[in-house]
Design a protein around this nucleic acid. Sequence first.
DNA 1: GTTAATAGATAGCAGTGCTGTCTACTATCG
DNA 2: CGATAGTAGACAGCACTGCTATCTATTAAC
Lengths: 212, 212
Amino acid sequence: MRIAELSRLTGVPVPTIKYYLREGLLPAGELTSPNQARYDDSHVRRLRLVRVLLDIGRLPIATIRQLLAALDRPDPDVHQVLGRALPSAVGGKDSVDPEAVRTARVRIDKLVGERGWLVGREAPARQATAEVLAAFAQVGADAGVLLEQYADVAETVAGHDLDFVGRARDAEGMLYAAVVASILGDSLLASLRRLTQEHESAKKFGIRGDDC
Amino acid sequence: MRIAELSRLTGVPVPTIKYYLREGLLPAGELTSPNQARYDDSHVRRLRLVRVLLDIGRLPIATIRQLLAALDRPDPDVHQVLGRALPSAVGGKDSVDPEAVRTARVRIDKLVGERGWLVGREAPARQATAEVLAAFAQVGADAGVLLEQYADVAETVAGHDLDFVGRARDAEGMLYAAVVASILGDSLLASLRRLTQEHESAKKFGIRGDDC
DNA sequence: GTTAATAGATAGCAGTGCTGTCTACTATCG
DNA sequence: CGATAGTAGACAGCACTGCTATCTATTAAC
């Protein structure tokens, strides 16, 4: 197909597709002449993935490029992707006091140790979690109880996630599933959490659900 | 205290504080003369909250302004904040096919009904969840199983969240706790999820945790 | 009385994700 | 065959967000 049809099928404007091509988010089409290229289904799928990672996952272009590069590697390594390539969802800015982060980091390392989680000592997720924990402290909230409860929940969720990944046919599909489940899973969990928070709040404060 | 000390205590540059004042994220200090104002602890706390919502929660300025306005209302209504004021974490852009969203919305409404969740028919979280579900479909992933599993998890999490909120001393504290728990909770859960995903992946693929 | 800091106003700036325009070509249709 | 529409690739520009810099008139602090 030509670029116009790729655009039609995905709803992405042609100039935007060209931009993604330039940014390396989309492989170039097969050139049939100096100014004609042919695209196929793989481009449609890739383009849809990019839009979803952008709009739902809210990942920056640069992060998506890295993620797709990991997806396209000839030696699929799901563990590597789950452990390293995926962004931590926590923004890079460090608004929190470094000392508080260090304290929180000790706490996280202790949590990981106690629970016997097999997580690399330098895993970015450790630092990311420590930063969030420090943020709780920064706003004067005691996240102690919440941390243990959430850790239980996270174990359950990760189990479901790995099941989801394991359901894929081949290694490539598993890699793809790992990316989708991780990034979209965050959003799915967050929005379901909002739903259930409203429900629990309605129960607790005795408000009927069909008003508001 | 003067603005310089407010800056020192929070690590936020003075021009940035002035910007937040202009944007209504921070109440004006008490004017002691036409060009002198006095700030206090409440400004320090508010400023820290703003930074954490910005950097960890990744909320846009406009959303933070609305959220703080809800916090400052004289009639604290925790349920209203949990149900309406909180952003849905899902980006506003609609990259997904509207038809797919409509289908997903039916599914979510069914889920809410089956589980007896007391959630307003027009609750934004319904639409947000539907959009995420449609995004799964868009990238060719079947989120069926995951949805039910995550719904179970979300019920548990929301229970913990409401406990957390209930631990606050007064209505104002509960409102504050609701905001903090919701926004930072998303990030805490997401980063703990990354940790446990790496763990589960290490178990499944037989990789030792201390290498990588 | 000199120096540093301040409120408030306005302009500018860096990063991100596009969007518009141009050129030299090519496909397609009548 | 010619007219029209579409295309690759290059490059400039644009809208939005979250700041940052500069200026003026005034005030605090030593």
